[in-house]
Design a protein around this nucleic acid. Sequence first.
DNA 1: GCTTCTCTCGTACGCTGTGCGAGGACTCGA
DNA 2: TCGAGTCCTCGCACAGCGTACGAGAGAAGC
Lengths: 258, 258
Amino acid sequence: MPSKPDFVHGSVWMRPPRARGGQPALSREQIVRAAIELLDAEGAAGLSMRRLGSSLSAGATSLYWHVANKDELLELALDEVLGEVYVPEPADAPWRVSVTVFANSLRATLLRHPWMIGLLGNKPTLGPNAMRMGDRLVALLTEAGFTGFAMSHVSSLLHAHAIGSATIEAAIAAGFGRDNVTPSEVLREIEPYLDKIGPEHPHYDQWRRANPVTDLDPRQLWDEGFAFGLERIVDGLEHWLVAGGPPTPAPHPAADKT
Amino acid sequence: MPSKPDFVHGSVWMRPPRARGGQPALSREQIVRAAIELLDAEGAAGLSMRRLGSSLSAGATSLYWHVANKDELLELALDEVLGEVYVPEPADAPWRVSVTVFANSLRATLLRHPWMIGLLGNKPTLGPNAMRMGDRLVALLTEAGFTGFAMSHVSSLLHAHAIGSATIEAAIAAGFGRDNVTPSEVLREIEPYLDKIGPEHPHYDQWRRANPVTDLDPRQLWDEGFAFGLERIVDGLEHWLVAGGPPTPAPHPAADKT
DNA sequence: GCTTCTCTCGTACGCTGTGCGAGGACTCGA
DNA sequence: TCGAGTCCTCGCACAGCGTACGAGAGAAGC
């Protein structure tokens, strides 16, 4: 066999841009991005290291060079999508508006990536995006006039409303996601069950008959409900603020106080 | 005949428990109770069918006679502990008080069984205890003067506050549960990390320095925060109520999304 | 040339949920 | 007393999981 021209075999042009044998075929960012894609498409149960690996044309255990374990990967993915949350600058608008924008953005992000919800209760979110979100929210609330621990309580209140609402909505939406049935059809399916157990729940049953929900788009109803709650919260905060904050000045509870 | 996974008829709540007879060494109630015990003791990751079986001195697959699968078992366990939530009767107290009692009870239940939190977003809770809770809350809110969809929005708002708050608290508490260290020690451990990345988060860092949290019991702080938020919510609801409910017939409710 | 560092991956282990079918225990009718 | 039928338990097996380990490929530096 005559020797082949060397430039064919060893040249750059013959090598694929990201050869399988090449070194940097994988990166942490790439892995996290692929994980999010898989999670969005198939939910939390659809993500396994093997599936993730093969979605990157890599071996399952190759991932462990870039990521300590699956939990850490989920943590990274969670913080990554938290980067989608938008927190306005304090100067952008009145605080009532800015706070509403933030809460809506957090809720929308959670509903866009419902797998986040089951992860949030597991460990504190200390990633860079979560911290950035927290920092900007502190700026916003401080500028609005909240100080001390009340400020962090307000932050928790807003977070809780978005997270709690998204949890409830995601739960019901999970019942809707099944094979191409519309929410109305699902609601109509549940109806007989509710009718059957109706007598055991007279108050709810009466309300349900007076407020049939079957023909409405539940998504619109949830949007309204979230906005309603958020308005009540912001109203309550404003009243508290104009009333002068805490009724009795308790700036520094240094010692145990009851 | 399409045997599509019918949302209602496939659900646990539609099927009666297996008929009795033979030798009932195991029962659904017993299994659910043991599962809750295991979940409380070891968290969601600590429950496996094999471990649950051997905690009942039974084979793992014996459980499948009484329970269709693990998901259904978790659903049963979730509804069971929801029975711990207390909803006052409308006549017991002014609605502001009753609503506060309910929200506190829901939060306390969630914190007593933190594994509930990761389950809530997965599917709607239609079990008997959840329905009973919903029914009593409807009675409460109707008596308070809320009607129509606003009533369900108020219900969602209260649920969301409890669930969201519990989620946040459980996440941080999970970081505390580690090997016999006190929360203060954990906070002191995190301190250097926060110091290091402080410059990237100036607002938060400034607030943190002005409000050192290290010496406080975080549990007390969370209690205060939850109560603060709940007061703001109830205030906001009361103002809305005395203002006469919805301001206008509202042709354009709210469709803003960010 | 050699060593060293960076990265990939095949193999393997212990664990998971659960389908299947054998078989034990009990009740009932004769 | 004897089947027959029903209720319930459980051993086995399978596919899939997270991941520890160590071999080895390729690039970089001496």
